[in-house]
């Protein structure tokens, strides 16, 4: 005799519940995910590159006018940066001379591990990179772009892949300071590429265009990595602190290759 349809439904649902409990509370879930990532990574890399190229092409077609304006602005900015670089070179030489005179060693360089982004999560600001536990990755390692702009940190490690939580993720929070000013605060992700600098004392002078870099206070990230620039400052009488909206420095669409800081 054939079992009634309701019994089939109940048994099916029970099987699904047990399956997901096993996948969630044992290492089997991670193994299954790692297996699928492993067999799919060549396709994912292909799709990522194709998406990147198509997006670049479409941006060129639909925003040609804006691009021209942006290029002009960048040209002017690059001119002013040349002078700044020369100034910094002088300071670097001075710094080296002083370190030698004071017999201090050179600052330890960060140890980096090159990786590639292969996909982005739809539920949050999380990306998957093609390096995992077998490559020495561990939870909490900071991730930066080749331009040394902060991208996020590793939150989950599989055998061959890792999940990186972007700084714009709602769960992301770390200490930061404003470059050239004695202003410290907490950078919090707002989701949907939004980023905020919060808990800044009201008496501090925050202004639009200020560069926000990581601070060594929390120990999450090495100090001095660029986070973004202040877009808009929000100060109200009700709030005990002032906050600011930050434009993140990294561009995920352009960040194909990234670096994981394994030692800092």
């Amino acid at each position: 005799m054939k079992p009634p349809i309701r019994l089939n439904l109940v048994l099916g649902l029970l099987f699904i519940v047990v399956l997901f409990l096993v996948l969630n509370f044992t290492v089997l879930g991670d193994k299954v995910k790692n297996f699928f990532y492993l067999i799919s990574s060549p396709l994912q890399q292909g799709f990522w590159k194709a998406g990147d190229a198509t997006s670049d092409f479409l941006t060129g077609v639909f925003q040609a006018e804006n691009l021209k304006k942006e290029a002009d602005e960048l040209y002017l900015k690059s001119r002013s940066l040349i002078a700044r670089i020369a100034e910094l070179k002088e300071l670097e030489n001075e710094n080296l001379a002083l370190r030698e005179a004071l017999q201090l060693g050179l600052q330890k360089e960060m140890e980096l591990n090159l990786s590639r982004i292969i996909s982005k999560d739809i539920s949050g600001e999380i990306v998957l990179i093609n390096k995992g536990g077998k490559d020495g990755m561990a939870e909490g390692y900071p991730v930066i772009t080749p331009q040394k702009l902060l991208l996020g940190k590793i939150t989950k490690v599989y055998d061959d892949f890792s999940e990186v939580m972007l700084i714009t993720n709602r769960d992301s929070s770390f200490d930061a300071r404003v470059l050239g000013k004695d202003i410290y605060g907490a950078v919090k992700g707002g989701g949907n590429s939004a980023l905020y600098l919060d808990l800044v004392p009201k008496d501090k002078e925050l202004s639009s265009g200020d560069i926000v870099v990581t601070a060594a206070l929390g120990g999450d990230f090495p100090a001095g990595i660029v986070v973004g620039s202040v877009r808009e400052v929000r100060k109200t009488d009700i709030e005990p602190f002032q906050a600011a909206e930050i434009i993140p420095s990294f561009d995920l669409k352009a960040a194909d290759i990234i670096f994981v800081i394994v030692d800092f």
Partner: peptide
């Protein structure tokens, strides 16, 4: 669905509509 999930995560992420990604 395997191909759609791959396209969703690796291709479509470059084309958000007002910051929203169609599922």
């Amino acid at each position: 669905f395997y191909i759609l999930a791959l396209i969703q995560g690796s291709f479509l992420v470059h084309f958000t509509i007002f910051g929203v990604l169609p599922n």
